[in-house]
Design a protein around this nucleic acid. Sequence first.
DNA 1: TACTAATGCGAACGGCCGTTAGCAAATTTA
DNA 2: TAAATTTGCTAACGGCCGTTCGCATTAGTA
Lengths: 193, 193
Amino acid sequence: MSSTQLSRKEQIDQVATSLFKSRGFAATTMRDLALELGIEAGSLYSHIKSKEDILQRVCFKMADEFNAAFDEVKTKDVPAAEKLRLAVAAHVRVLTKNPPAAGVFLNEWRHLSEPSLSKFHDMRFQYEESLREIVREGIASGEFKVTDEKFVVLTLLSSLNWLHMWYKPEGKMSPDEIAEFLSNLLLNGLKNF
Amino acid sequence: MSSTQLSRKEQIDQVATSLFKSRGFAATTMRDLALELGIEAGSLYSHIKSKEDILQRVCFKMADEFNAAFDEVKTKDVPAAEKLRLAVAAHVRVLTKNPPAAGVFLNEWRHLSEPSLSKFHDMRFQYEESLREIVREGIASGEFKVTDEKFVVLTLLSSLNWLHMWYKPEGKMSPDEIAEFLSNLLLNGLKNF
DNA sequence: TACTAATGCGAACGGCCGTTAGCAAATTTA
DNA sequence: TAAATTTGCTAACGGCCGTTCGCATTAGTA
């Protein structure tokens, strides 16, 4: 069924990702990971550099995906409310496309060591700042009735970023339906505050 | 300034809690913990049974606090919308009273082993079920315009449960102001869906 | 004062951890 | 076919982990 053949390294990353998500990075051992792949722990090192090496790839790949999805939205010339709706949809799409990776991205990044950790922080700040910018636009234009754009973005991301905890691809709601539901709920809150 | 004198065991729990929150349970060593307290690792075991022993106390103490705060709300005879508002306020109050413990409760519970883990799951389900019940009430009475109470509660808790990540007691918003802001945002969303 | 509980030290235990090294197949490429 | 790459094994390393043990010291209590 799966279309493209994964390289051994990609397989390792994928299996590691779901283990990192379900058990946590620190609580996942290389021997666990090897067992899941049906090989010995030492054999992993023919393909990867280190345990954190995997974590880095997962975290920054997800960061790239969030940025790419968001960059498309940024360029659109639409009212702030609509732009925010698109941003929410983009965020949900990335989040639901690969829930294990999303979970690692959201919960395990703190196990990155410097300088990756700082780089990650920066990227995250940039992303959030872009969202705040949209909300500021909406406040200025009178579309949103709130005043504290920081708080709004925090709440927005909070409700989105828990998604990976319960979302199941086989569930009855599609990512687009989820995105629409969340947009409605949150944007109506902003407009009628 | 602090009113009551903490026993050594309570001190350990408290310091451990903030370490568990900032580094994660698995990545916090007993030697780290001991260092923070200015004693040797072995000395900890004059006061506690095991590392997980601490985690259990923190998790179930927080669970009790959430339940206690919520039980007060349950008994009130008010419309569903108002009840939900009170529940949100209660939840925020517990969450902000002790952010490190809240963080452990929300993110580190998975390191509990059986049978604690199952017990924790059950308590959590009960709590969420009670919230769903309120939302169902509100849907039935026409106060809320949504249809999927599961999704609503998930979104509600999501936005609340990220709070401990950025809330600082010395910040400019008080817990009550935060609770009011969140209630307004989310309830307006529900009513005008 | 004598007893008891609380508190802590230092050394050590068995075990698991991430990682490395040297070597051997198998597979791909030329 | 020959060379190069990919993939994997076994064994081991140094180190850190949670925890235990026996013993000392201190503080509270009768």
